[in-house]
Design a binder for these strands. Structure first.
Lengths: 203, 203
DNA sequence: GTCTATAAAGAGATAGAC
DNA sequence: GTCTATCTCTTTATAGAC
């Protein structure tokens, strides 16, 4: 987001020599494996091959790691909503765009979004993240409601319930999808769109 | 499960006088609010209005509370699968039964299932629970595959992916559904079946 | 940018009285 | 069935040297 030059493939020095992004990436991995609360700073340092003090040199606290990671995920999701407005005429089209792009953000930022989806509001940092998630969901619900009025989405289910069910499906992807497997992000997005729009039943 | 007589509405004595079930119920509430790892035994005792020692009189450890709670959820889900076999001819019918009953178990045992769905395998107790969840998912995937062969479920999506998407949707219910609200469990189950089988799109 | 050493608080669990 | 007091270990975080 705020990087003006650093799009290079990251130096990767001999052994230590970590920068903030590299440390953040490893920390998020460990947070996901053990859970944020169950992850001690000692465990993070060990995984990095660093002492705790070296880690505290880069981040002021365990919570700052969490905060920066959550911001990465939220920024990307909010970006999808921002882009959906321009040059799309109907609510149905905008909703389709948001769904498909949200799946891709989930895959591209898998660890960050995974962490976001596990946050429960246990601290100020977590509560602020939940607030931004709620705002996102609220905007999508508005899109679903508009699509119902328009006639492109079935109106016999409450917009809020429909949104929650569909995004429940989308978000659950972080529980099992691994980019290494046989299914590409494009296949996955296509499957999600099919099930969400047309369901499982044969016709 | 092993209660031979105690189906009475629970005594509810003057102030303390807790039994295991009452303590378990409160503990599960707190585990969900704060997360299991972030919940200290002191916090549990405080919520119960008891000392830590009184709590340890009922349960040998914090982990025993978790273990009993997870068993409650898993037992109910496994029961759904057990019942689905008898007297239903096609895989499509069995799958429909499992979906609808799973939603109802989620609602009836909401706190226990919520806790189950947040387990990440951080200890032997958690890993055993995950193993049982995997076995459940595997059986449902088999049902989906049979329904595809039969022709009642669309075959252009991998059975494993379809199962994960649909159960992702079902499981996400624990994130937002509250029995007190306007939507009954029957309405919810009906909405889930509609979206899962026919999708959001109008026709 | 990294280290060792340590402070200060909180964790899970137990002893033993009532 | 509940209590107070305490043990021991681990936690987050800091001090200060290299």
């Amino acid at each position: 987001m705020s990087d003006l030059e650093a799009s290079a493939p990251a130096p990767r020095r001999g052994r230590p020599g970590y920068d903030r992004d590299q440390i953040l990436g490893v920390a998020v991995e460990v947070f996901i494996e053990l859970g944020y609360d169950a992850t001690s700073v000692a465990a993070l340092a060990e995984r990095l091959g660093l002492s705790k003090s070296a880690l505290y040199h880069h981040f002021a606290s365990k919570e700052e790691l969490l905060s920066v990671a959550l911001d990465e995920a939220l920024g990307a999701l909010e970006g999808v909503l921002r882009e959906s407005g321009a040059s799309r005429a109907t609510a149905g089209e905008r909703l389709g765009y948001v769904l498909e792009r949200a799946v891709r953000v989930l895959v591209e930022k898998l660890p960050y979004v995974t962490l976001l989806l596990r946050v429960r509001g246990n601290s100020d940092v977590e509560r602020r993240a939940l607030e931004r998630r709620r705002a996102f969901d609220h905007e999508v619900t508005g899109l679903v409601r508009a699509a119902q009025t328009e006639g492109s989405v079935r109106a016999d289910i409450d917009a809020s319930v429909a949104t929650r069910l569909i995004f429940g499906m989308v978000n659950s992807i972080v529980e099992w999808y691994r980019p290494a497997g046989s299914e590409s992000a494009a296949d996955l997005a296509s499957d999600v769109m099919t099930v969400a729009l047309d369901g499982l039943r044969t016709r």
